[in-house]
Simulated scan of single mutants.
Amino acid sequence: PETPLLLLEFHGSEAEVAEQSKNFKEIASECGGLGFTWTTRPEDRTKLWQARHDAYWSVKALRPGSGVVATDVCVPISRLADCVTETEEDLKRLNLLSPIVGHVGDGNFHCSLVCDVDDAEEMARGEDFM
């Protein structure tokens, strides 16, 4: 489904991974997360991670013919939620399309700014955002 997607990897013994998955499912559910699934099969994990690896092409398909510029933002994990929230507010204020993808366990995320390269005003807003 076309909804935000959160992928996680848990590491440890089989029992530890099961416990971490159970705890995360409960936390995600409390926060409004839907459709939690997990797997230990390598082929299933590969399929799930393919969505992350195909993110650029999904973004590019949002506005055929537009350009996509990827940003790289890294902040201390303690500031990550604030930074993502502020970034979303900036995008809304500037009326820009930019899905956010990240490997946030290390405080890192990417905006994929989608702009019509022939629209000088939109490009200026994109420059402002950058």
Rank of each mutant, 00 (worst) to 15 (best):
C83S: 14
N108I: 02
L91S: 05
G107M: 08
N108A: 03
C115M: 10
R52K: 01
V101D: 15
D82A: 14
E122C: 09
F129E: 03
K92R: 15
E88F: 03
G102A: 01
T40C: 06
F10S: 02
Y56W: 14
N108V: 02
S98W: 04
L48C: 11
H53I: 01
E30H: 13
P76C: 01
D106S: 09
H103S: 07
S29P: 02
A124I: 03
L97K: 12
S58V: 05
L97C: 13
E86N: 07
L34M: 13
K22S: 11
P42W: 12
L6S: 02
H103L: 09
R93F: 05
S13G: 06
V17H: 06
I27R: 15
G105V: 09
V117P: 00
A120W: 02
S66R: 11
E19R: 09
E9S: 13
T40V: 11
T46H: 14
E88N: 06
V69Y: 15
E89T: 11
N108T: 03
E43H: 14
H11E: 08
I77A: 05
D128P: 00
A55V: 14
W38A: 10
L8P: 02
A70L: 09
H53F: 13
I77T: 07
E9M: 11
A51P: 01
T40G: 09
K60L: 06
T39V: 13
E121D: 14
V68Y: 05
F109V: 05
E16H: 04
P64F: 05
T87M: 13
D44W: 01
E2R: 08
A28V: 00
L94P: 05
L113C: 06
G126Y: 04
T87I: 10
H103E: 08
E19I: 00
E88H: 06
L8V: 15
F24C: 11
V75C: 12
I100V: 15
R41I: 12
L91Q: 07
D44M: 09
G105Q: 05
L7N: 06
A55L: 14
L97G: 03
C115N: 04
D72T: 14
P99L: 06
W57C: 00
G107S: 07
K22C: 05
T39K: 12
G33R: 13
E30Q: 15
L48R: 09
V104R: 04
D119S: 08
P42L: 10
R79C: 05
G107C: 08
L113Q: 03
C115F: 07
V73N: 11
D82S: 14
S66F: 15
E26F: 09
I77W: 01
D119R: 06
G12V: 07
V114W: 07
A28L: 01
N23S: 03
T40S: 13
S98L: 06
D54I: 01
D54V: 01
T37Y: 02
V104P: 09
H53L: 10
M130T: 02
M123K: 04
K92S: 13
I100G: 08
F36G: 03
E26M: 11
L80K: 04
E2L: 10
A61W: 14
D118V: 07
V68F: 06
I77C: 04
C31Y: 14
F109Q: 02
L62A: 04
P76I: 01
L7K: 11
L113N: 04
G126Q: 02
S13Q: 00
K60T: 03
E9I: 10
K47H: 02
C74R: 10
C31L: 15
F129H: 03
L34Y: 12
E9Y: 08
